[in-house]
C-alpha cells in the first residue's frame, strides 16, 4: 500500500546524511502523497500537491541548497531525548484516534454538516460541476482571499529578506549600481505564484 511506501520514504529522510538526497526524498514523498490523495478521491488536492509540493517546493529547496551548501554536520546531542518525546506524543495521538469513527464510513459525523448542502445545492447555487471549486471560490471565498493575502505577505517577506542581503553584497562590490531596485535572480523567483 502507498501509505507503507510513504512511511519507508519518511524513515529514509531521517537516515540519509546528504542534504541533496534529503531534498530529493522529500520530493518523492510529496509525489507519493499526491498518489495517495488521488486514491482517496481528492483529485484537486492531488494535483496541487504534485505541482506545489513536489514541484515548486523541491525547486525552492534546491535553490536554498545551492546557496547554503549540502554539508550537514553530525548531530551533537544523542537522539534519545527527542526520540522519547516523539514516542510519547505518538502514543498520546494513537490513544486519541481510538475515539475516531472508522475510516471511510459514510455515516461519520464529518460528512453530515455542511458537506451535504454543498453536494446537493452547489449545482443550482454556483453552477459548476466541481464541488471543490465552488466551495473554494464561493462558499469559502473569504478563506481563499485570506490565503492569497498570506501568500502575498510571504512573497513580500522573502523579497525583503533576500534583497537585504543583496544590498549588503552590492555595497561590498562597488562595480554595481545600488540605485537599481532589487529585481531578478532570487527575488523574482518567489513572485509568480
Amino acid at each position: 500500500m502507498l501509505l507503507t511506501l510513504l512511511a519507508a520514504t519518511a524513515f529514509g529522510l531521517v537516515r540519509v546524511r546528504n542534504l541533496f538526497a534529503v531534498v530529493m526524498l522529500a520530493g518523492v514523498y510529496s509525489l507519493l502523497s499526491a498518489g495517495l490523495f488521488t486514491v482517496m478521491d481528492a483529485v484537486d488536492v492531488a494535483f496541487t500537491e504534485a505541482a506545489v509540493g513536489a514541484g515548486i517546493s523541491t525547486v525552492l529547496f534546491l535553490g536554498a541548497l545551492a546557496l547554503c551548501g549540502t554539508r550537514e554536520s553530525k548531530p551533537v546531542h544523542t537522539p534519545i531525548l527527542p526520540l522519547f518525546v516523539v514516542c510519547l506524543t505518538g502514543i498520546a495521538l494513537v490513544y486519541g484516534t481510538m475515539d475516531m469513527p472508522p475510516f471511510g464510513d459514510a455515516s461519520n459525523p464529518v460528512h453530515h454538516h455542511v458537506a451535504d448542502h454543498y453536494l446537493e445545492e452547489s449545482e443550482h447555487e454556483i453552477g459548476i460541476p466541481n464541488v471543490v471549486t465552488s466551495v473554494l471560490a464561493s462558499y469559502r471565498g473569504y478563506d481563499t482571499m485570506g490565503e492569497t493575502t498570506v501568500v502575498f505577505a510571504a512573497a513580500v517577506g522573502v523579497m525583503i529578506l533576500l534583497a537585504r542581503g543583496r544590498r549588503r553584497t552590492r555595497e561590498d562590490a562597488p562595480g554595481e549600481g545600488s540605485a537599481s531596485p532589487p529585481t531578478g535572480g532570487r527575488s523574482t523567483r518567489e513572485t509568480p505564484r
Binding site: M40, A42, V43, F103, V110, L119, P129, V132
Partner: peptide, 13 residues
C-alpha cells in the same frame, strides 16, 4: 483527506 474519504465514493465532481 482520510477524514473526507467515503468508501466506494467518487471524487466530488
Amino acid at each position: 483527506i482520510s477524514l473526507g474519504k467515503i468508501s466506494g465514493g467518487t471524487p466530488p465532481i
